[in-house]
Design a protein around this nucleic acid. Structure first.
Length: 414
RNA sequence: GGGGAAGUGUCCCGAGCGGCAAAGGGGGCGGACUGUAAAUCCGCUGGCUAAGCCUUCGUAGGUUCGAGUCCUACCUUCCCCA
């Protein structure tokens, strides 16, 4: 697979981004000849993307770095309908304002990776999907799709095999995505769609549609579906998603997520999520035993610096050092504020842990006490009836609450 | 349109003769061991003003001292026939 002529594919290949390409030689040729336009689609269902999308964002980043024109396509049109696959939850129809707000939040993170003033664009498929005329769409686009063929795609087949319902709307998702590709080709000369390997079928459908409707040659490039070495999905933790936006997940917590990478993933992640030269990566990956912790710190700092800036990354690293290697209650840990009056009256310790977000309920906090998992100012908590008072404040004027060895929150009286 | 099967702890899979806060996995969390890792072992995995109380088995009713379990209707899904 090596030996690409274009910088673009060579970088992606060397760094492990490539799972499958529809026509490697053809795409390589096109990318070597001059700038090409390529895109990746993203959901607009939340105000922030999470770490699971980071690999896609990095692909766009490299695309721009190697002289091409990346497009981040927001699924504003499809988000308006709502994803029907989770029908247990009262499915909220996102309003235009919701989506607008989400796009603003997402754009903020994106702008750390892409230069939107330069050759990168952020587009919204609502611009062309909302105005579609059903009959016209069926005649122009629908006739090119074979249901027989669509049923044979793994993404569909799996659902059918598991005897799960597949709504007509979901079934159409593939068609809309294919249409997006062709529309982008018409509007911006886009010839490449990238995505996770689970998107392969959808992307190829777009390529087919391009052949039929516009007689153009389009390309697909997918990245490996990202899991950690032990099989967990990227971007999820107990506390929820690893959000990219700082207001949803602090730089410190983001840093911690990467710091806790499994040994076996360090090299892979350094290549995928940082822009460090491969020679540096190789050097760090060669570290064995406990020394690999140094590599993990570099990983965490680099990934955080790219998203939140160098300064925030260093602050996070410093906080971590103080917390884990110094034993103190460093500044920079997540902090919650408690009215001083409330503290004066005495605050139940279980309640305090719930307020700090370290336990979802008093019951859970109680369980953790029983299991020896909670600490107050670094002392293991044994009495669940303990009450916090102004006397509980430590020398720095805060109460440090800990769950396990890794999660710490400071309680501050105001 | 007709006939059959199914929906369980709001993360998932999945047992459940009328006494059930409901077996067992997976996942997750905590502890031990380590290196803020993996693997392994142990504990926990509805809520609360907690020897008690409250809410849970698709939805709504009914039978019963008592219903996840039986009856009725409805919703959803799957299979077969038309």
């Amino acid at each position: 697979m090596s030996g690409f002529k274009s910088d673009f594919l060579r970088v992606l290949d060397e760094r492990g981004f490539i799972h499958q390409i529809s026509d490697p030689a053809g795409l390589d040729e096109a990318a070597a000849k001059g700038p090409i336009s390529g895109y990746i689609g993203f959901d607009a269902t939340a105000t922030s993307l999470h770490a699971g999308s980071l690999i896609q964002i990095m692909m766009l980043h490299w695309m721009q770095q190697t002289g091409h024109h990346p497009i981040a396509l927001m699924g504003g049109g499809t988000s308006m309908i709502g994803d029907p696959s989770f029908k247990d939850e009262a499915r909220k129809m996102l309003t235009l304002e919701d989506i607008e707000r989400n796009l603003v939040g997402i754009r903020k993170a994106f702008s750390r990776y892409l230069d939107f003033d330069g050759s990168a664009k952020m587009l919204n498929n609502a611009d062309w999907l909302t105005g579609l005329n059903y009959l016209g769409f069926l005649r122009d686009v629908g006739r090119h799709f074979s249901v027989n063929r669509m049923l044979s795609f793994d993404s569909v087949k799996l659902r059918l095999d598991r005897e799960q319902s597949l709504s007509f709307l979901e079934f159409n998702y593939m068609i809309l995505q294919a249409y997006d590709f062709v529309e982008l080709n018409a509007r911006h000369g886009t010839v490449l769609q990238m995505g996770g390997s689970d998107q392969w079928g959808n992307i190829v459908s777009g390529i087919d549609l391009g052949h039929r409707m516009r007689d153009v040659q389009l390309f697909a490039l997918t990245s490996p579906l990202l899991t950690t070495s032990s099989g967990a999905k990227m971007g999820k933790t107990a506390n929820g998603a690893v959000w990219l936006n700082g207001d949803l997940l602090s730089p410190y917590e983001f840093w911690q997520y990467w710091r806790n990478t499994e040994d076996a993933d360090v090299e892979r992640f350094l290549k995928l999520y940082t822009t460090l030269p491969l020679s540096d990566v190789a050097r760090l990956a060669a570290l064995g035993g406990s020394e690999i912790n140094e590599a993990k710190k570099v990983l965490a700092s680099e990934v955080t610096a790219m998203l939140h800036g160098r300064e925030a990354a260093e602050q996070a690293a410093k906080t971590a050092r103080a917390t884990f290697e110094g034993g103190g209650a460093a500044e920079g840990l997540p902090t919650i504020e408690i009215p001083a009056a409330e503290l004066a009256e005495g605050l139940g310790i279980l309640n305090a842990f719930v307020r700090a977000g370290l336990a979802p309920s008093n019951g859970e906090a109680r369980r953790q006490v029983k299991g020896g998992g909670l600490r107050v100012n670094d002392e293991v908590l044994t009495d669940e009836r303990l009450t916090l008072t102004p006397d509980s404040l430590n020398a720095e004027g805060v109460v440090k609450l800990s769950l396990g060895r890794k999660k710490h929150v400071l309680l501050k009286a105001v």
